[in-house]
């Protein structure tokens, strides 16, 4: 008769231990790149941070010149991401509402869901090339070619699947009893969705939107074809129709320059980009936790 006490040397226990450590080891390796990338950028880029960075234009590359700042790129990223959000949030949330609330699982909604999944897997550079062909090369936007507007459109294509999917999933999590309750007292579908289901699902939808924004803000490839780059301050509304700088493209351009000053600027921009995307991600989690608390008083 075997003893009931745990026996270290038993082969099943040895194998069990081994696999526990193996999976722990793999988990550590998986997290290492994140830690290294973030630390490296924080060290390399953090050293370059100074107030001028946020206010000055970058100087054109050249010998012994001071590199200047990244103000236009910073504002450009904000502007382009805002445009992308303005396009993709209404369309995405609307599409998600259709899928979750109105469609009855017919072939059309299956097709849309499939399409959204495919769109989510489309390489970002394709989105850029598509907008290039559609908007930039045709000069369809009042004769302008490369523009912040075109950049925003390219990014909106990347944000769209995330927003649709999270809206769809978020609405599906709302218990049907709540819908019945609202419909049972004579609310229309429209009132039910607007006043009951959407507010209940707000948390997950907001998280999805924020994650979509964070993803779009870091994209480079679609912007190279659409917004291109600019060294100059964004001064007014009209600048939307001209080339616009962005942090991601600034990093791409300046990291390849042979001059040290520009390379440093690229590091600084990387630092700011990583920090702001991390902040947005963390904010979305705080937002999620916060709204959850208020909801279940």
């Amino acid at each position: 008769m075997n003893s009931l006490y745990y026996q270290k040397k038993l082969s099943r226990n040895v194998v069990d231990k081994f696999f526990t450590f193996l999976s722990l080891f793999c988990a550590l390796i998986a997290i290492l790149p994140l830690i290294f990338v973030v630390t490296y950028i924080l060290i390399k880029g953090g050293a370059q941070i100074n107030p001028d960075l946020f206010t000055l234009e970058p100087n054109p590359p050249g010998d012994d010149l001071d590199a200047g700042g990244i103000n236009p790129a910073l504002i450009g990223t904000l502007v382009i991401t805002t445009i992308a959000s303005i396009i993709s949030i209404p369309v995405g949330v609307g599409g998600g509402i259709y899928l979750a609330e109105y469609s009855k699982g017919g072939p059309f909604s299956k097709f849309v869901r499939f399409g959204v999944n495919v769109l989510a897997g489309v390489p970002s550079i394709i989105a850029g090339v598509f907008i290039y062909a559609l908007i930039v090369s045709t000069k369809i936007l009042f004769g302008s070619m490369y523009s912040g507007l075109a950049g925003g459109m390219a990014l909106s294509i990347l944000m769209l699947p995330t927003v649709i999917k999270t809206t769809d999933e978020g609405l599906k999590l709302v218990p049907n009893e709540l819908r019945y309750a609202s419909l049972g007292i004579g609310a229309s579908m429209y009132t039910t969705i607007l006043k009951i289901t959407l507010p209940t699902a707000f948390r997950s939808i907001a998280t999805g939107v924020v994650l979509g924004i964070a993803r779009a803000a870091g994209e480079t490839a679609p912007l190279i074809f659409t917004a291109l780059f600019s060294y100059y301050y964004i001064t007014g509304f009209g600048d939307l129709f001209y080339e616009m700088g962005s942090l991601a493209v600034l990093i791409y351009n300046f990291a390849l320059e042979p001059y040290d000053a520009q390379n440093k600027l690229a590091w600084a921009a990387s630092f700011i980009l990583v920090i702001s995307i991390l902040t947005v991600n963390i904010l979305s989690r705080i937002l999620a936790a916060f709204t959850e608390k208020t909801k279940r008083v």
């Binding site: 009893e177 709540l178 019945y180 309750a181 009951i196």
Partner: peptide, 8 residues
């Protein structure tokens, strides 16, 4: 309904 379902 069967289960109390107040709105949030």
């Amino acid at each position: 309904f069967q289960q109390p379902n107040p709105f949030p």
